[in-house]
Design a protein around this nucleic acid. Structure first.
Length: 412
DNA sequence: ATAGGGTTAG
């Protein structure tokens, strides 16, 4: 079924008019979370309920074949942390409301537009449900719009727009806890966010939403990372202790910790430099009958590297292959960085070559690390020759093009 | 078939 001719010519100038649009309260309100939802009724199918697609109105249009133009892509990127997620969401929403239409085409018919900087507006019959909101909130966190995400969450609860479920709590928890892992500058703000995370846990309790393994793991991971921003004082490992408490609690509630739980805990200890404790957990997994995976190896390898115990790291690294699996790109990058930091450029070169011959493709991390290694060995040898010279060019090109891509994305 | 958890640099 083709698109109606009326619609094919529809561009942003002539798009269908809203079936209803709900305006936003004060335009100039200072509040940071503001959304506008606008429901459009397809003019060729007035019997349809308005249905939802998230888009930036002014950038939405279609070409002659009915395909959305590039500009809609901006929108996906804006809302979700991958392009796939919002797309899935739209598909789902579209399908639910437009059963009469061919699935793929339905996706293109934009009825529900969404723009930031306006108040959230939900009306009965607009099919935004908990899953859609979860996707949205996750997208906001991914965009680092932490306040927006939290405000949206609060708004949903306060105004009873949407009853949060355990998944929503997990997203918010995780979003709050995870941030700051790399951004130490905002430490104070982050701590406040941690408080918010703990409040949410209490809220869950009150509402009788039972945490499951994923929720628990989010909490444990958050607690484990929390201590990073605390001053180095007696409270140093307090939060990991809390995490251990949470773990005990989950066992009592009949939720068995899995490899992800233990990985989060191990990472927590590694971040505090207590790699030996992490190692004990790792070794104890065998007795518990829990398979260690590449994540757990990588966490521990990083822990050893951080303590400059590169030999221990190397040993674990080799164990991966001995166990019959392959080191992944993260494992390679971690060990390369570790070798670089102790100045073992020769070993690093060898590992790098092994990585290439194993068919593992270097990514931006590997290239940056390799450049560091090259610079260091140049200092030692006075020149860069052969294999390294070639890799130097490859690496530089890769990094440059990655920078360009990043710029392009930021412009969007 | 819808949404959620652990690892790598600066």
């Amino acid at each position: 079924m083709g698109l109606p001719s009326f619609f094919i010519n529809t561009t942003l100038k002539g798009r269908p008019s809203p079936a209803f649009s709900v305006s936003a309260g004060e335009e100039d309100s200072k509040m940071s979370w503001k959304w506008r939802f606008e429901a459009l009724r397809p003019p060729w199918a007035p019997q349809l309920k308005p249905f939802a697609l998230i888009s930036k109105t002014e950038e939405m249009y279609w070409d002659r074949n009915g395909k959305p133009k590039k500009s809609t892509k901006k929108l996906y990127a804006k809302l979700g942390h991958t392009e796939i997620q919002p797309l899935k969401m739209m598909r789902r929403i579209s399908l639910r409301n437009c059963n009469d239409y061919d699935k793929d085409e339905t996706l293109l018919w934009c009825p529900f537009s969404f723009s930031t900087n306006a108040e959230i507006y939900l009306k009965n019959g607009i099919p935004f449900d908990v899953v859609a909101f979860n996707t949205l909130i996750k997208g906001l966190f991914a965009e680092n719009k932490v306040e927006d995400a939290v405000e949206l969450f609060k708004k949903l609860v306060r105004d009873k727009i949407c009853e949060p479920n355990e998944v929503m709590y997990a997203i918010v928890m995780n979003g709050l806890c995870k941030r700051g892992h790399t951004q130490k500058t905002l430490s104070l703000l982050r701590l406040m966010e941690q408080d918010a995370a703990i409040n949410i846990l209490n809220e869950m309790k009150q509402k009788d939403v039972l945490p499951n393994i994923v929720t628990y793991n989010s909490i444990i991971d958050g607690l484990c990372k929390l201590g990073q921003w605390e001053k180095m004082d007696y409270a140093k490992e307090g939060k990991v202790k809390d995490a251990e408490e949470v773990m005990k609690h989950m066992v009592e509630k009949g939720v068995e910790p899995n490899i992800i739980t233990y990985s989060a805990l191990m990472d927590g200890y590694c971040l505090r430099g207590q790699v030996n404790r992490a190692r004990r957990i790792f070794d104890s997994l065998r007795e518990k009958g829990i398979e260690t995976d590449i994540f757990s190896y990588n966490i521990l390898i990083k822990g050893y590297c951080k303590k400059k115990k590169v030999d221990d790291a190397m040993q674990l690294f080799c164990e991966i292959s001995q166990k019959g699996s392959k080191p992944d790109i993260v494992a390679y990058n971690t060990i390369l960085q570790g070798l670089f930091e102790v100045g073992r450029t020769g070993d690093a070169k060898q590992i790098y070559a092994e990585m290439l011959s194993a068919g593992t493709k270097p990514n931006i991390y590997s290239h940056v690390t390799l450049l560091n290694i090259i610079m260091l060995s140049q200092k030692e040898d006075g020149c860069v020759a052969g294999f390294l010279e070639e890799r130097l060019n490859v690496g530089l090109n890769f990094i440059l093009s990655a920078k360009v891509d990043q710029k392009r994305r930021l412009q969007v």
